[in-house]
Amino acid sequence: MRTFKLHTGKVLFALAVLALLIYTIFPFYIAIATSFGAGSGDGSLYLPETFDFGNYVSVFKEQPFFHNILNSALVSFATVAISLLIAVTASYALARVHFRGRTTLLLTVLGVSMFPQVAVLSGMFELIRMLGLYNNLGSLVLSYTVFSLPFSVWILTTFMRGIPKDLEEAAIVDGATPWQIITRIFMPVLWPAMVTTGLLAFIGAWNEFMFAITFILSNDNRTVPVAISMISGGSQYEMPWGPIMAASVIVTVPLIALVLIFQRKIVEGLTAGAVKG
């Protein structure tokens, strides 16, 4: 009787895990199947009959999708580089130097990450026109950097607090400058946290939509989320689902690869940014 109970427990648990896997993976599987031709015409909705790359070809032929990918990559890498540079120096000061107003400053930084994007939209629109960055990728780098700074600073500050003081004190005694302390002492210990923040900033920039659709006007300058949202057919009722799914798969696969490779790092970052934050 007892073993029976144990077995049903195991079976139920296995079923729960299976249901969880289907729930999380199946939608993306359908996107892949559709991108290869499933669901078009009379074919099965679930399985493409052949591996038809036609949708992938048409995505690159019918819009500047290659350009859009380059734009997204450029904007995302620039965002990561700039926000990491600013965040590392700032978080060193916030974690290691005691000065008046430190807590207030940290809370303000955290407050910025709560901003609804639309709340700064008109002001930022004005700013970007003033700087002559309208329809320029620079507008996106600027806005994404500012929106990724708060959590970058937050994660790196939390991480830097955990580094033992002795290392730094020894360096100070030896007469090292703060910049030397950051580059020689902290960077080697800090890189895991920097990988984490960099990844989160990259994913945020790669996926952003509202600023990208507002500040960029021409097809050639668009980033991929906007490009995908703009793929349309002859009419509202004739959406070209195959190409849309092909484009979706192209932009999502690198992200999924990153997430699978750096799973542990990302989870660390999310929990440091939120649970400890």
Binding site: P27, F28, F209, I228, M239, L255, I256, L258, V259
Partner: peptide, 20 residues
Amino acid sequence: AAILIPWAIPTVVSAKMWGW
């Protein structure tokens, strides 16, 4: 790792995917 997939998918993509 698998449950991170929905989180990593861009919202635009997930909206299109579910729309389909």
